[in-house]
Design a binder for these strands. Structure first.
Lengths: 162, 162
DNA sequence: CGCTTACTTCAGAATTTTGTGAAGTTAAGG
DNA sequence: CCTTAACTTCACAAAATTCTGAAGTAAGCG
């Protein structure tokens, strides 16, 4: 292990907390944000519940809650080491930001609410027309995001190799 | 005014509250979400502070706070009717979702935090490499979003005319 | 000028959210 | 089977946030 590669726990912690703070500002809950940042900055890309609790100074209950949220939103995955009841949580490196970008369920619900708005306020009213346009925008974005992620994969390969 | 265009206050209110609830779920604060939904579903696309307070049953203080937030994030604009100190708040129809999409300041800060992470954890460590890749992703997205919005304007014109 | 209307700011009450300890559940290991 | 380790759930205390009423500021109007 080179000097550059030796991890300074304080530097790691500084980064974890400052990156987590940015995620919080973007609307993420505090504990999930901290847990996620810790995983992101771990060399293996995985940590156990105990390691997370120790680094972040939080209770097992807090780890459990944060991890459940992160798994539900596909930001991390859970792995069971065979023949053990210790779990490992992993950032999927190239998949978590796809989860971030792909808010499909959310957009679908917005679209539902807007469609309802168009029909209940009347498609022939100014407000109804405004909502129909907004709806068209979301439908457009939905299609574009998929194409963008495909271009990213190509771009990524060019930058970092296969 | 046709029957279809006559506004049923209860239908409007139902839509406002349900759309606001979706915005809240996406991370927006409650009052800004309700105020924004009310503006979006108004025929004129503008409302005064008094109208907002009455429809949403909230105090002038709450209107003031919500509107300040919405103006800061470019979701609505404030207009002064000349020769009056009554203000009108307006959804810019085709601009608010651009504001939603264009989280440039946010992304810039994420990039800053990640750059710091790469250098403090070491560009030659596994964690550093993971963060460098994440950083590249955000840089990529930044460029793509601008192009996507340009395509939207073209698409929009095709759907709704100039 | 002063009155009045419209918005803003601020302190605090009320609500909501968050994180903990403790008890509960599950499954490995003896 | 029984013990114990690992995670989960739950009730509650603490902390943070939200919204209000009241006081403050500014600008039109007489």
């Amino acid at each position: 292990m080179t000097d550059a590669a030796r991890r300074d726990p304080e530097a790691v912690s500084n980064f974890v907390e400052s990156f987590a703070a940015q995620l919080v500002e973007a609307g993420m809950q505090r504990m999930p944000a901290r847990v996620f940042a810790a995983l992101l900055s771990s060399d293996a890309g995985t940590m156990t519940a105990a390691e997370l609790g120790e680094q972040l100074r939080i209770s097992p209950a807090a780890v459990s809650g944060a991890v459940r949220y992160l798994a539900q939103t596909h930001m991390v995955s859970r792995e069971r080491e065979p023949g053990s009841r210790r779990e490992r949580y992993r950032v999927h490196g190239d998949q978590w930001y796809e989860a971030l970008t792909n808010r499909e369920a959310l957009i679908k619900r917005w679209e539902g609410a807007l469609r309802e708005g168009v029909s209940s306020l009347g498609a022939d009213t100014p407000a109804g027309r405004r909502m129909a346009e907004t709806l068209a925008f979301f439908e457009f974005v939905e299609g574009e995001v998929a194409a963008m992620m495909e271009r990213w994969r190509v771009h990524r390969e060019k930058l970092f190799g296969t």
